[in-house]
């Protein structure tokens, strides 16, 4: 794919989402409210006023919302395009349909990730003024790149949903399942042994372990580096396998046609 085409599609994506937000300012407020509501739910499960524990829950809230969004948005966007009758135009675009779907989604992901991180700025300063700037950077970084490795899975979900004759993203149960297996809400050690083994395959497991370590003040640089390497390795491996499956699914779908 040439750079000009790539940039054109990103530009189209930016225009699409800015138009949507401009038309529905209420939607932006709702988007901003969601991580705070997850934070309240986490606080309801385990009430704690320790600043580091709250910061950990803030990070988890952002990543929980982002994981649900990333697994849901690409597929639900594909379904919307199918309902609106626009999908044939996407299919006939110069780049592959899967790439078009992802490139039109990426601007939304980046914009919402930055907003999600920034909305916690006041809370961070109230909690810990000395380290709040550092935590804000961590928040921005995690919000932007944390759940990106799930993009491959979201494409696969989109193709599975398009190839079925259903009206909803019927694989949406994967989001809470992945969060549970990755130890987003409870330690992985509480899970049965076979699930603990499965959790090692998900990059998100290492992501939540990194969060746990950096908010406990006891992380050595070596441990963090090891986890970061595992996060990158599993991300590359998982997405390579999923890329092959998505390519196969895409050709099959184009050959067979899409149900309405």
């Amino acid at each position: 794919m040439d750079l000009k085409l790539f940039l054109c599609q990103i530009k189209a994506g930016i225009f699409l989402w800015f138009s949507l937000y401009k038309r529905s300012p209420l939607l932006v407020s709702v988007l901003l409210l969601r991580p705070y509501l997850v934070l309240i739910a986490l606080f309801a499960i385990e009430p704690s006023t320790n600043p580091l524990s709250i910061i950990r829950n803030v990070l988890i809230s952002i990543l929980v919302v982002s994981s649900i969004d990333i697994l849901w948005d690409v597929a639900s966007n594909a379904l919307s395009l199918r309902f609106l009758g626009i999908l044939p135009y996407i299919i006939s675009a110069p780049s592959s349909p899967s790439l078009s779907l992802l490139l039109s989604y990426l601007p939304k992901y980046i914009l919402e990730s930055v907003l999600k991180a920034l909305e916690f700025l006041p809370l961070l300063f109230v909690l810990n003024s000395a380290q709040s700037a550092g935590f804000l950077l961590i928040l921005l970084l995690f919000s932007l790149v944390g759940v990106l490795p799930l993009l491959g899975l979201s494409s696969l979900i989109a193709y599975t949903v398009l190839s079925s004759k259903e009206e909803t993203v019927w694989l949406d149960w994967l989001a809470p399942l992945i969060l549970l297996v990755s130890g987003a809400l409870y330690p992985v050690s509480l899970l049965p042994p076979w699930l603990q083994l499965l959790s090692r395959l998900f990059p998100t497991t290492y992501l939540f372990e990194i969060i746990q370590l950096i908010t406990e003040n006891g992380a050595s640089a070596q441990t963090l580096l090891g986890l970061a390497i595992m996060y990158l390795t599993t991300s590359i491996l998982l997405n390579s396998i999923l890329y092959l499956l998505v390519s196969k699914g895409e050709s099959e779908l184009l050959r067979r046609g899409i149900h309405l």
Partner: peptide, 22 residues
């Protein structure tokens, strides 16, 4: 659309289990 209904039930039950275990 039985698959969508069943899938919705599974999604709800996973979320419910997450909070119940906690």
């Amino acid at each position: 659309y039985l698959l969508s209904i069943l899938s919705g039930s599974v999604t709800d039950s996973i979320w419910m289990a997450v909070f119940l275990i906690g």
